[in-house]
């Protein structure tokens, strides 16, 4: 097995294991902290796909920003008291069935799609190439994103201030 394949399996294992902790841990802070290895696992996979820039921003925004945000929120609420939240309720079996069905669907789609098998190396996703794409053909998306960010900011402030 090639080194890259090994790396992929290791990263996938880390991501999935951490993901399981995030979803099932009764302690909310443990849940939030377990997000970090999960996100770092995904970062590793981005690197394997030659997307260095994406990996960098994944760590910067997700592991460094969103995790902090989530931790603040958890500490602001009862979750921060180490309260143990029960992880099962009467909807368990239905949830499990739905999850299995969705997983089955995704696996079926993934294995049956004729993915384009490109020979040679992966395309390069350098910051320069991304920049040229944003400000060239995708400039409307670029501007749209700033509007999206503005809306997020205004919305959050509105909601948060109303609570006071």
């Amino acid at each position: 097995m090639s080194g890259e394949a090994v790396a992929f399996y290791v990263l996938a294992a880390i991501t999935l294991a951490s993901g399981v902790v995030v979803v099932t841990s009764p302690n909310l802070v443990h849940s939030a902290v377990a997000l970090v290895p999960a996100l770092l696992g995904v970062t590793g996979i981005y690197i394997l796909l030659n997307a260095e820039f994406l990996a960098g921003i994944q760590v910067l925004i997700y592991a460094g920003g969103i995790t902090v945000l989530i931790l603040f929120v958890i500490m602001l609420t009862d979750g921060g008291t180490g309260l143990r939240v029960p992880q099962r309720n009467e909807q368990g079996p239905i949830g499990a069935a739905l999850a299995a069905a969705t997983a089955g669907l995704l696996i079926a789609v993934a294995t049956r799609t004729p993915w384009a098998q490109g020979a040679g190396t992966l395309p390069s996703y350098t910051p320069g190439a991304i920049g040229q794409s944003f400000l060239g053909p995708n400039v409307l998306v670029f501007e749209g994103t700033s509007v999206l960010l503005l809306v997020t900011l205004v919305g959050a402030i509105l909601i948060a201030r109303k609570e006071e």
Binding site: G65, F72, G131, L149, T152, L153
Partner: peptide, 22 residues
């Protein structure tokens, strides 16, 4: 919460500036 949310919004903004800067 508000400070960290603003941080995330502005951080994403900076993320969009890096590719352009280069």
């Amino acid at each position: 919460y508000l400070f960290s949310l603003m941080f995330v919004v502005f951080d994403v903004e900076i993320i969009y500036l890096y590719p352009w800067a280069v």
